[in-house]
Design a protein around this nucleic acid. Sequence first.
DNA 1: ACCTGTCAAGTCTGG
DNA 2: CCAGACTTGACAGGT
Length: 333
Amino acid sequence: MLVRFGYVAMSVLVENASPSRTMTMASFKKIDDREAAIRKLERIAAENLHNTLRLLRHNKGSHIHVYRFSSKLIPLATHEDLMDWDPFPALQSDFAAIGDFVKENGMRVSFHPDHFTVLSTPREEVLRNSMRDLRHHVRMLDAMGLNATAKNNIHIGGAYGDKPSAALRFEENFLKLDRDIQERMTLENDDKTFNVPETLAVCQHLGLPMVLDIHHQWVNNEGEQPWDLWPDIWKTWQSPLAQADSPADRPLPPKIHVSSPKSEKDIRGHADGVEVEPLLSFLRHIAADTPELDVMIEAKRKDEALVQLMQKLAFYHEEGVEWVDESTVIIHP
DNA sequence: ACCTGTCAAGTCTGG
DNA sequence: CCAGACTTGACAGGT
């Protein structure tokens, strides 16, 4: 099994390269000339896109092929008070440059719209805002010229005291979405509400690919082992939605998330780095049946955690872990 | 240069 | 019905 590792949004190794600079609404309103304020937002966005490209270059130099974009590339992009603002014309070439670089280097990229995007909500307004946020994320991918192999990963959402009906509401709301939003979506099990079996069921109903988070699975489960449901999770990556735009001879591999508990007191929090043993144990359990896997590292120390994990994996050379490059290994079953 | 309270957004809990 | 916790990087205003 070929395993490629990636990291999320920002680097701790590249200095002054935040892709998430922002502006508060309070300071936006303080600028009397609204046009000037909007130009400032666009300058910040352009800077975020520029830093994103810098990070991608850094990734290329470190042979890192998997990366998640910051969702905050354009500050206040979906804010109510800025509905008349279309930031895309001014940023088109910056977005295109990112997409070109991703395609030239065969990278796998994604977004993770944050926890305000909730399709299980019973509230009409929250649903509207969630749909707007998903549209915004797809527009960014479109502006990059990236097809449906670049996904937006989300959670199912709240339970509102009745999980089955919340899951059903998610499914109904999902079916209202435009096809281009649907085919760019992945669903991830969360650490409090929708566990692996529950998330998997929704994915199976909708034909959506499931991103397994093995840390979330560890703190929110029904007694199953992390690898128990893997054959079914793996199957969700073979659906038409999951493979939309993927060439038949090079299907999009499944993806998992990994992180380690911050402490015994705070088992949900994310530690600086990633513990190698639990991850390796999982990988060995699925290696025989999974040709290829992408692993998103969600550690506090971002790309530094990736580098350190790779160093730790090098010690397992005699035990079936073959080092390929700075972010890739082969796990021999 | 460094510190602290605050930030657009949701949900859950406890009062 | 409402305040506070949750969680996270970055702002904004202060020293």
